[in-house]
Amino acid sequence: MASASLISEPSFSAYWGGSGGFANQTVVDKVPPEMLYLVDPHWYQFPPMNPLWHGLLGFVIGVLGVISVIGNGMVIYIFSTTKSLRTPSNLLVVNLAFSDFLMMFTMSPPMVINCYYETWVLGPFMCELYALFGSLFGCGSIWTMTMIALDRYNVIVKGLSAKPMTNKTAMLRILFIWAFSVAWTIMPLFGWNRYVPEGNMTACGTDYLTKDWVSRSYILVYSFFVYFLPLGTIIYSYFFILQAVSAHEKQMREQAKKMNVASLRSAEASQTSAECKLAKVALMTISLWFFAWTPYLIINFTGIFETMKISPLLTIWGSLFAKANAVYNPIVYGISHPKYRAALEKKFPSLACASSSGDNTSVASGATTVSDEKSEKSASA
């Protein structure tokens, strides 16, 4: 009893500022009885969260959901209906937007509802489904980004010796992405780990608090194949992309010096400049993705290794940062891809990010003009 008091009272003061009146309540009190078997005993030591946090989280997730559904929906529509954008490389771009679209379409409304009730009210099955969707579309996004990085590596580093990606190759990669993602995310439904309510009780995710190593092993193996392996592949790809672009730029400067001119900014040089911008934009996009999902990784690892006590408030940031990822990509495409911007201005003049007469050396995070040209030549051949 004494130890319980020592746990609950400081936690209460930390969340409620010592205002009193709720010392005997916990964050689990509002959870429906049919959900209690999924709630880890760890959460019973924490008092209810301030309703302001639930309201703020619900509002932010609702806004992010609307922006993501509209933004990614427009990316899918424009890339699919604009002939100049229908290339094998851009199939990966569409797949990424499709994954982000489905993530917020399926996850934003349930979270807004649960934030309103300040607990999970949709039942155990929907809890598992919600967590599965989050894991599935998150895995789909990261492996699509990995395939985009490998495609960029093939085009930019290997150059003319590279074998262009065809529609068949792109579709096979997309099929692999979804088969791989489904295989990993259904495992908890069959006993390797499980999906449970998170500490804030308004979202669900993997169980990182169960102490047996069967459950813990899933977190470790899954994080390797869905976080560290893709991260290593992307870093490898973009390291050599930047190295190749840097070497080419150096050659251009040396050649210009020999010819006693300020610059060799021909069409070829402009293309090289575009590839350099590609690397920067793509690295930014990928960095944002990992910035979004790293909090979840840290929370999961903190749980299985017990490095510190996880509070319900901490779990809010994992949900928020991960779901915000689905908003980034359409914004990056809109400000960086000249063909996308031109199509956006034509189809939705009031939503165009900038005039299509602007910088023609801009580049998308998903595809470059050089790869598009290769794809078109391959298709015609």
Rank of each mutant, 00 (worst) to 15 (best):
S5W: 07
I7H: 08
E9R: 13
S11F: 08
Y15D: 08
G20N: 06
F22D: 03
F22A: 11
P32W: 03
P33N: 04
V39T: 02
V39I: 09
P41H: 09
P41E: 13
P41C: 06
M49E: 05
W53S: 10
H54F: 10
G55D: 04
L57T: 14
F59D: 00
V60G: 00
G62A: 12
S68K: 07
V69S: 09
G71S: 01
M74P: 00
V75K: 02
T82L: 05
T87P: 06
F98H: 05
F101S: 07
T106R: 00
M107E: 05
I113R: 01
Y116D: 00
T119A: 15
W120K: 11
P124I: 11
F125Y: 07
C127K: 00
G140W: 00
T146S: 12
M147K: 04
L150F: 08
L160K: 14
L160C: 04
K163V: 15
P164K: 02
A170N: 07
L172K: 15
L172Y: 06
S181T: 12
R194F: 07
E198N: 08
E198H: 07
V214I: 15
Y218S: 07
L220H: 09
F225P: 03
F225S: 06
L229K: 09
Y238M: 10
V245C: 13
E254M: 10
S263L: 07
T272N: 09
A279V: 08
T285C: 14
F291W: 13
A292F: 04
W293G: 11
T294M: 10
P295G: 13
T302F: 05
T307I: 14
L314N: 01
T315D: 09
A324V: 02
I331G: 05
I335M: 15
S336P: 05
P338W: 08
A343R: 12
K347I: 12
C353Q: 03
S356M: 11
D359H: 11
N360L: 12
S365H: 06
G366M: 06
